[in-house]
């Protein structure tokens, strides 16, 4: 079976909100994105209740040990192409909880666990921020579907002579 590439995702994006133990601030921002003020439905973004219907998982939180099996199950239930938008410092790298004993510590580490369990993630876009602004989430969605180009790039500078 040929898997559609994420670029072929030209239709409306259906999103599933996956809270993996976040402090709820990022989740409130997601609600902001979906509410009429920022109105992500302008881009066809629609919240669905089941991961089986979703194109994109809006993943927030540092993935606590308690939620890990459920998160793996939810992501496995998603059809391919499986896209993930990791929202907030927690989901990007563990954020302020990065060295806590009770969390996996962000999506990159979860991705390894998923790979070991045979769950392929086709594309992931990281949205930093604590919490990520509604605009930042919309920007992330736009980058995910190829509407906008990413802005940031790694910077290496040498300390200047005076």
């Amino acid at each position: 079976m040929r898997v559609r590439t994420p670029r072929a995702l030209k239709r409306s994006i259906w999103v599933f909100h996956l809270n993996t133990g976040s402090c709820n601030a990022c989740d409130i921002e997601i609600l902001d994105v979906l509410a009429p003020f920022m109105d992500a439905e302008r881009f066809g973004v629609k919240l669905v209740a089941s991961p089986r219907h979703a194109d994109v998982a809006l993943l927030t939180g540092p993935i606590t040990r308690e939620t890990l099996p459920k998160v793996v199950n939810a992501l496995r239930a998603m059809p391919r192409p499986r896209l993930v938008l990791a929202i907030g410092a927690c989901a990007v790298s563990g954020g302020i909880w990065h060295d806590s004993y009770s969390v996996i510590g962000g999506f990159p580490r979860l991705k390894k666990i998923l790979e070991e369990n045979g769950v392929v993630i086709d594309r992931v876009v990281y949205v930093p921020g604590c919490p990520a602004r509604p605009e930042a989430i919309i920007y992330g969605l736009a980058v995910l579907v190829g509407l906008l180009k990413k802005k940031v790039r790694k910077e290496v500078k040498e300390a200047g002579e005076r």
């Binding site: 990007v92 990159p108 876009v125 930042a136 910077e155 290496v156 500078k157």
Partner: peptide, 19 residues
């Protein structure tokens, strides 16, 4: 600046090198 969405975590790094 808040438009930091990226696919590569490397992009989010900023390094200052001191000799």
């Amino acid at each position: 600046e808040f438009e930091l969405a990226t696919e590569e975590l490397e992009d989010l790094e900023q390094v200052v090198i001191h000799r």
